[in-house]
């Protein structure tokens, strides 16, 4: 019994149903159920994080042990991980809280993680150009429509378009607020219904692939 899917399915059903009921009943104990569930979720996630770290570190230590391809870079990853953990502990001892501005921990965050994140983010400037070029080469009706609209909107949002004709930015805004808005609304209505569908399928136990 306990090894089967019965108990987990019952838990999903009860949790989901109580949260739905709580949406309509503000009175205690229902009113705070969603907040409590989220708090519990974050505690579960906190413990599961250790499983995640275990998975990552095990993968890379195994790579190093077996001298697999690119194993030397796994040492870099482990070094980075250990370095920030050690700096974090030292910062906690020294400042009482590692997250204080000026601590070594935050220095590493600000000068290593932030620039790396920003640079990864800025790669999008190149990728967006290559994706647009691809749409240009696709030469089917839908891709052409997408690309032409993209060019009009992009052009309408740079100052030069207004110098050529003040109607261009107005037309761009019209595209954003009429056909773009219409498509977005239709898609969002579909998503809302789809989300309700997925949720009910899981709560009712029709969809159970997430449990082995």
């Amino acid at each position: 019994m306990i090894k089967g899917k019965g108990i987990p399915l019952a838990i999903s059903f009860l949790t989901g149903t109580i949260i739905i009921i709580a949406f309509f009943i503000p009175h205690a104990p229902f009113g705070s159920f969603e907040e409590i569930s989220l708090r519990w979720y974050s505690i579960i996630a906190g413990f599961t994080m250790l499983l995640g770290v275990d998975s990552l570190l095990r993968l890379h230590t195994n790579k190093i042990k077996r001298k697999e391809n690119h194993w030397a870079y796994s040492i870099v990853l482990l070094f980075g991980f250990l370095l920030i953990v050690i700096v974090g502990i030292i910062s906690t001892i020294r400042y009482g809280n590692a997250f204080l501005t000026g601590s070594g921990f935050m220095y590493m965050y600000d000068n290593m993680i932030i620039p790396l994140q920003s640079t990864m983010f800025s790669l999008l400037a190149f990728f967006i150009a290559s994706a647009a070029y691809r749409a240009f080469r696709a030469r089917n009706f839908d891709a052409t429509l997408l690309l032409i609209t993209a060019i009009i909107v992009m052009f309408g949002r740079v100052p030069i378009s207004e110098m050529i004709s003040p109607k261009i930015p107005i037309f761009t805004e019209w595209i954003m607020s009429v056909p773009q808005m219409a498509a977005k609304r239709g898609i969002i209505i579909g998503i809302a219904l789809g989300a309700i569908g997925v949720s009910l399928r899981i709560i009712l136990g029709i969809e159970r692939s997430y449990l082995s």
Binding site: T149, A150, I152, I175, P179, A183
Partner: peptide
């Protein structure tokens, strides 16, 4: 409509 919408968001 969807393609025009996507193009606008892209641009």
């Amino acid at each position: 409509f969807i393609m025009i919408g996507f193009g606008a968001a892209f641009g």
